[in-house]
Design a protein around this nucleic acid. Sequence first.
DNA 1: TAGATTGTTAATCGATTAACAATC
DNA 2: TAGATTGTTAATCGATTAACAATC
Lengths: 227, 227
Amino acid sequence: MSADPSARRGIPDATVARLPEYLRALTGLAERGITSVSSEELAAAAGVRSAKLRKDLSYLGSYGVRGVGYEVDHLAYQISRELGLTQDWPVAIVGMGNLGHALAAYSGFATRGFRVVALLDQDPAIVGQEIAGLAVQPMSELTALVSEQGLAIGVIATPAASAQDVCDALVAAGVRSILNFAPCVLVVPDGVDVRKVDLSTELQILAFHEQRKALASPAALRKAVAP
Amino acid sequence: MSADPSARRGIPDATVARLPEYLRALTGLAERGITSVSSEELAAAAGVRSAKLRKDLSYLGSYGVRGVGYEVDHLAYQISRELGLTQDWPVAIVGMGNLGHALAAYSGFATRGFRVVALLDQDPAIVGQEIAGLAVQPMSELTALVSEQGLAIGVIATPAASAQDVCDALVAAGVRSILNFAPCVLVVPDGVDVRKVDLSTELQILAFHEQRKALASPAALRKAVAP
DNA sequence: TAGATTGTTAATCGATTAACAATC
DNA sequence: TAGATTGTTAATCGATTAACAATC
């Protein structure tokens, strides 16, 4: 319908997952006063190969200059725009245990266009408490938050046992993007995105590799022989 | 050298990353008293397709029975063994801010063979405080923790600015598996594994998809028209 | 112009999926 | 045996990489 570069479709998932890291690397360069960067330098800062970086960026458009490199501010803006970070995303965190508490206080969200507009909990004993400057609200407020605050992203930080109920409530209220910290699989209708962060899964993957290393290293022999 | 099934090599990374989820699903089934499960049922519980599950399990060995399915306890044990969870993994958490605090109190680690043996911080003002039943130790204790407690896995929960220093200290002390919560790229020598959990990266990926949905939905039209 | 670096191509690699022979 | 379900094959799909023509 259009020759506008934003009309291109289908940025690969693997590429989308790396864009935040590129953006962070660019932000770091900008803070150090660097205004121009080559794919080789930026790739090193982001921990990838330069060929991969250039391929990834090519999906967004043609924002570099051959023989010169990329302008840091301009590329950062283009990636921000692609990720949808030039607008403000209201976020609600559900579940005010240790993790929810830490997430509510985490300043890293605010730096990138995310605004924690509400903290909620199913437990009436916790509702009303003030955490990180916000009064904890009951789940019944969800619908109002969606319509009045434009709430679009929900973070689930409850125990696994209540995660599906909380998820259902979020979906019923109209939230279509969910970040799940509970160690369980969530069932959602089509059109709802769930991403999962599982702390103990990550440790288990490390343990697998650590075990392989231990089996192959001299330390394993020492350990096997020692009393 | 051996026909032992444990002699097989090279389980794909994508498969390793799913094994913890299968294990969790199996644990859930066992708790409900279910002793036998088909690949179709287990796949549904783990949120994958049955063909993928069977392919993944085939890398571990042949633990099912044709026409019958898998014995829940036996398969859980085999996955645990493959992941190295039949042994105990001492873990240290470095950085006792909000997130480190929450991680120290997180009970999900202990349930899967991980034991938080030490909490550390670079700030002398925090060293000595008691958190989750452990006294916070200075970084200088790392080497002793590795040799005396067999510390193998380090969790970095510091701000980005100090993460590389902490990482270097962990590596110097002999830690070869690191879980990084700081929003930055860590440089490590060969033989050291780093996995990264980035809370705001996950939100940014959600924002990308949410933006695409908003552009395509009737709600976007309403929003564009409304004052 | 000469040197440098992008954007793209084509080859390779790894992951997913459907289908089905093997076999309980 | 008949029915069910695994383990494996082969095809497809998507991601990565190296190389280089395009071009600043």
